[in-house]
């Protein structure tokens, strides 16, 4: 083992960090859209859709991300040939973004639903009592409070997704781990490559945690000294 190789590998690997972060950002963005939609469907128990939402959440919670990745990678092109769209040559990044987006969507949906249900009934009544309509009540009163409450769980979920991106290389994505594998092939120093990767992941997670805890303080400033750890 040659520890000094880590210094050598570090710049080579971190130059692919942006791909990893790109996957994460895309996944969170897609996840937020899906999550809010599904949460609303679940909260309002929209007929038919509520059932679908339940199955979707149960499936995403019930299967490993690796299997989901393979299902999308092999299933989506097959599905799209039905409408004569050929994605068989599309960048695997696309499949990764969709898979992680779907996965985030399911967990965000449950987090948001839990938080919305956690907002006191009195807040809704107060909003109605001053003459707000349902949309104003939801957008101005309930959602801001729910999102602030949901934030710690949301942050955990995002960090989980970051760690999950380490599996994207299995369908041929050239992210940090993908680049690491080519480095291993050329240098035959697998252990040092994985040590470097671990250091980078750990660093990114620590930065995210720091950033999240700062935003959390800001977001929940209205909770004052009574802020409770929701974990």
């Amino acid at each position: 083992m040659d520890i000094t190789l880590i210094i050598d590998f570090f710049p080579k690997l971190i130059s692919y960090l942006h791909i990893t972060l790109l996957i994460l950002v895309a996944a969170v963005a897609i996840g937020l859209i899906i999550g809010v939609t599904i949460a609303l469907i679940r909260i309002y128990k929209v007929p038919a859709f509520n059932r679908l939402a339940l199955i979707y959440i149960s499936f995403m919670r019930g299967t490993p991300i690796l299997i989901q990745l393979f299902l999308i990678y092999f299933g989506l092109p097959a599905l799209l040939t039905l409408v004569h769209i050929d994605v068989s040559r599309a960048n695997p990044l696309l499949f990764v973004a969709i898979t992680y987006g779907l996965s985030c969507g399911a967990s965000f949906a449950e987090i948001i639903r839990g938080a919305v249900n956690g907002v006191e009934r009195g807040q809704t009544e107060a909003a109605y009592s001053i003459g707000m309509n349902e949309k104003q009540m939801l957008v101005r009163i309930i959602l801001p409070q729910a999102l602030a409450m949901a934030f710690p769980n949301f942050a955990n979920s995002v960090i989980g997704s970051l760690k999950d991106t380490s599996l994207a290389f299995t369908i041929g994505v050239m992210d940090m781990v993908g680049r690491g594998n080519t480095l291993i092939a050329s240098s035959l120093h697998a252990l040092e490559v994985y040590m470097t990767l671990s250091i980078i992941y750990y660093g990114v997670v620590l930065c995210l945690e720091k950033g999240f805890s700062l935003s959390e303080k800001k977001l929940q400033r209205f909770e004052g000294s009574l802020a409770v750890d929701t974990k």
Binding site: E120, G122, Q123, E125, A126, A127, Y128, S129, I130, G131, I141, P144, Q145, A148, F222, E223
Partner: peptide
């Protein structure tokens, strides 16, 4: 509701 307003037992101020 626009013609009325309410004061609640539990205040129900908008917390945020």
């Amino acid at each position: 509701r626009k013609k009325t307003a309410m004061v609640f037992q539990q205040y129900n101020l908008f917390k945020h």
